[in-house]
Design a protein around this nucleic acid. Structure first.
Lengths: 339, 339
DNA sequence: TTGAAAGCGCTAACAA
DNA sequence: TTGTTAGCGCTTTCAA
């Protein structure tokens, strides 16, 4: 394996010149640069990551802690991860993958200087990782919102506003009785705050507009979907619109509603909260508030990179929700749309 | 951040002694070891990964190249990844995540000495990454089977045998007309070899037993499942058993079969090929040939580790398929089971 | 059973 | 515009 000295010798320059050609940290004359680049190409030289990290205090690696359990939302997680990885590459960084259950991993990779920065997914209200992260020298960004950010950056969809928007959108169409089929009970119990924020927004807007609503948690399975739909129709037989925030159950909810005699969009409006590709892949394309998972992953990396070389202050970014119409919400039967 | 010298000073020993306490590569007297360990704990010392890599030629990181596209089987991928990550940790290694589409990433991380070894998923018959990997100094294991392994290790379920086992199992129950609903056309076109191997095994066993069979590719969606079921029932109205190898479509296939009047297991036997948790999560638990994704991920890591410190020869390991009964296959109506 | 010292391959301050 | 050189923090040979 060739070293920087081999390259320097081949190009007839010093090692530092090669280093500076690579880093661009000082001007190099064109002929010199050409000779160096030629030598690099010919020797197929690649700097030794460890040596570079040792000398520069930079690893060009970021750590990503992702939940690899199967229990929730594999699709969503993958999209976050994909967003993080591609974005990291755009900043010339690689990604070291840590699993959620290995809390000590944070300290290991950070204290061992394996990573320049950390992105942590699936944050709970009182997440025990937050204080650990706050104590590290590496900048961190949380995907999700803990109760106390303790000086860490956060990024997420604005779920509070999403709940309000969902209700407002349907109410503006004339719906007065709205169901909300949400996350599995276990997610709510874990206090992953998005579920709480979403419900809060949903409830406050419903209250302001004086609507009748009902919230049904839903297991992420076909059976769970059926149970939830049945529960919804029992609790609110005259429901005309339903907001669904459960990507796995979504398809089953739609088809079970239909088998119970509620067709979308004629008899019942469905407004999903999910990534665009999920909404589009349904048998009936669904109007949805976009959950921009890939974008959130990207932004997380951008935030952490900005702090890395700018040392800018931490910040929390909540992305504004947006409805994308796909025709699954009409005015309720017998009511004129108000919009 | 404390260095090894800080620890050495605090413990009243030399740096090399600290190093040897950490690595266990030479005997240390108990009192010395205690003093060193105390100093490490008090200073909260963690060796600098880059420095260690530079000096030892070992990074304690393995590279994992995984497909992060959404098009196929997110669930399966996650299980592989989880298996790899947990197993890597058991060998005191971390995992650097590379995406499938970044072929140059292999060379980057390998030549840059960022990883000790590589695990590559989703291998195609003529995979362009295979020659690249074969040229690296790091050991590699492929999850999947290319046409020419070129000296690389491979691990996978024995899909050939799986196809044979599926047919044999159903035939032994008395089924003579068997449908096979498989992967999406795109997977087959990509020549991801498992689909081909599975079909080959399925066909050869069917031919030997003189059965009537039909193979229907199936898109991974609800609509795809319906189309496939309809196609199957049209092509073979008297079908009594169906083998399904498509985790995403599985639930929809079962429920569409039922809505077409074929209940499982009374009227139609279903034998899935999928991970155990998928088979169990169906509305009706499905008898299935287990796809041991987590285990394959683990074994991949074990193989690569064995080569790393043993320099043992490359090998191909094909895991024997096994049926796990869950009651979704009965003898066909009007036939006595032959087993 | 332990220590001294020579690198590992690179970066960046300092000098020219 | 380029070169010289002193580390970065660790491992491991050699010596005691």
């Amino acid at each position: 394996v060739p070293t920087i000295n081999d390259v320097a010798r081949a190009a007839g320059v010093s090692a530092s010149t090669v280093s500076y050609v690579l880093s661009g940290k000082r001007p190099i004359s064109t002929p010199t640069r050409n000779r160096v680049e030629k030598a690099i190409a010919e020797l197929n030289y690649r700097p030794h990551a460890g040596a570079r990290a040792l000398a520069s205090q930079r690893t060009n690696v970021i750590g990503l802690m992702a939940p690899l359990r199967i229990d929730v939302n594999v699709n969503i997680i993958m999209q976050f991860v994909a967003g993080v990885v591609t974005s990291a590459r755009a900043f010339d960084h690689d990604v070291l993958l840590l699993t959620q259950d290995e809390t000590t991993g944070l300290d290991r990779v950070a204290s061992g200087s394996m990573v320049d920065a950390l992105v942590v997914m699936d944050i709970e209200a009182e997440d025990p990782r937050v204080p650990i992260l706050a104590a590290l020298k590496q900048p961190t960004v949380l995907i999700g919102l803990p109760k106390h950010a303790q000086g860490l950056s956060c990024v997420d969809l604005d779920f509070d506003e999403t709940g309000r928007l969902a209700v407002g959108y349907l109410a503006d169409q004339g719906h007065r009785t709205i169901g909300f089929i949400g996350s599995p009970p276990v997610v709510i119990e874990r206090h992953t705050t998005y579920a709480e924020r979403l419900l809060r927004g949903f409830n406050s807007e419903s209250a302001e507009r004086d609507l009748r609503t009902v919230h049904i948690p839903c297991e992420s399975s076909q059976v769970g979907a059926q149970i939830a739909v049945d529960a919804l129709l029992t609790a609110m037989p005259d429901v005309t619109a339903v907001v669904v925030h459960n990507e796995v159950a979504l398809a089953h909810i739609v088809s079970h509603l239909r088998s119970r005699g509620h067709r979308t969009p004629e008899n019942i409006a469905i407004l999903a909260i999910c990534p665009a590709d999920v909404a589009e892949a349904q048998p009936i394309p669904l109007t949805a508030i976009d959950f921009p998972t890939h974008a959130i992953g990207q932004i997380a990396v951008e935030m952490v990179m900005a702090r890395l070389d700018g040392d800018r202050p931490a910040e929390t970014r909540l992305l504004a929700p947006k409805v994308i119409e796909r025709g699954s919400t009409h005015a309720p039967p017998g009511a004129g749309a108000e919009v």
